[in-house]
Simulated assay, not measured.
Amino acid sequence: MPRPPTISLVSGGRAGIRVFGPVTAERAGQELTLPAGERLVLAALTVAFPGAASEHRLTEVLWRDQEPPRTARQSLQNHVSRLRAKLGADAILHGAGGYSLNPSTHVDVHHLRRRLPEVSTLRAHDPGAALGLVDELLGTVAAPALPELGEDPAAVGLRTVVRRELAGLRTERASLLVELDRPDEAVGELERLLVADPGDERRWELLLVALDRAGRRGEALATYQRARRALIDAYGVEPGPALRDAQRQLLGTSGPTVDALAAIRPFGRDDVRRDVLAAVADGGVATLLGPPGIGKSSVLAAVADAWVDGAVLRVECADNPWSALGPVDALLARLAAMLP
C-alpha cells in the first residue's frame, strides 16, 4: 500500500520518524536518506521508545542470524554517529541502558497511541470533531509497522498491540457514523470490518442499530441470525447481553428473547424450553423467534406442559396475520370468553 502524501511530522527542527511502512525520518520538514543499517537501528530504537536498546540488542538486529563481525561495535557506533549527524546531535542518547531516542522525537506509531484517548474525550461534546480526529489518525497508517524487523518478537508484540488499537478505532468510527445519523455509511463500513473479523460482537451490535436507523429493520433482524451463526462458528458461544438487547429493541420488547433456531440442534428443544421458562419467571416476557416449520409451536407446547405457576392461554392469529393488533384482539376475545 502506498504511503500517504508526505507532510511534515514536526516543526522547529525536531526529528520525526515514520514506521508505518518502511522506516523514514525527517528533520525540519526534509525527508532524510537512510541506508538499510540506519533504518534497522532506528526501527529497534522505535520499538524500545521511550526506553533504551542495549548494544547487544542493536547488534542482534543489525546482523540477525549471522555471526557479528569483530568490528560490530564500531559499525554500530558509526551508524549512530551518522544518524546523529542527520537527525541532530542529541537525537540519539546514550546511557547505562544503551541507546535511546530523545524523548522529544516524534514517532508516528507512538504519537497515534498517545492521541487515542482524545477521541472519547472529544466525542463527549463534539462527535463530529471526534470523527475528524479518528480519520486523521487512521490516515497516518499506510502499512504494517516496522517491516524491517520482520518477525522480531518485540516488533511483533508492538504490531499486535497497534493492530488491536486500530481495530477499536475503526469500530469507534462506525459508532460515530451511527451517532451522527449517517447509518448507510456505517452499514457499509461495518460489513467490510466484519468480513475481516466476523467474531466481533460489538460490530454486529452496531450493524443492527445502523440497519434499523437506515429503515431496514427486517434486514437488521435477519442480521442478528447472521451474527449468531458467526459467533458460534468463531467462538462456540451464543450472542452476549448487548447484542441480545439490540435485538429486543428491534422487536419492541423489553423482556428476553429466545431463539427457536436452537431447537434444531440435537437435544436442543429442552434447552429452549428451559430458556423460555426462565425468561417468563416473575412476570417476564419471552419472544420466540424462527422461520415457519422450525418447531416453535412444539417448544411452546412443551413449555405449557412444564408451566406449573399458572394457566396457559394459547391464541391462534392466522385469521388476521397482517394486523399488528391481531394477537391482541384474539387474546381479548379468549379472555372475554372465560369470564362468567
Rank of each mutant, 00 (worst) to 15 (best):
G283A: 01
A324Q: 15
P2W: 06
G16K: 00
A222D: 15
S75K: 14
P321Y: 02
G51R: 12
A143W: 07
L277R: 05
I264A: 13
L122S: 11
S11F: 06
A53I: 07
R226C: 14
G37P: 03
P153A: 04
R228K: 14
A302H: 06
P4S: 01
T287M: 08
G268P: 04
Q247K: 13
A281L: 11
L231W: 03
H125I: 08
H79N: 02
A330E: 10
M1A: 14
L194R: 08
R164M: 13
S297C: 10
G168E: 06
L101N: 00
L335Q: 14
A301N: 10
L166H: 02
L289P: 00
L300N: 04
P69H: 07
T46N: 10
E179I: 06
L133W: 12
A130I: 05
H125L: 08
V178W: 06
R39N: 05
G188W: 07
G21T: 00
D181N: 13
L221K: 12
V161M: 10
A227C: 07
A306P: 01
G295H: 01
P5F: 06
R244V: 10
R123E: 14
L45M: 07
W204R: 09
V47F: 00
Q249E: 15
A214M: 05
D245F: 08
L289H: 02
Q74V: 08
N78R: 15
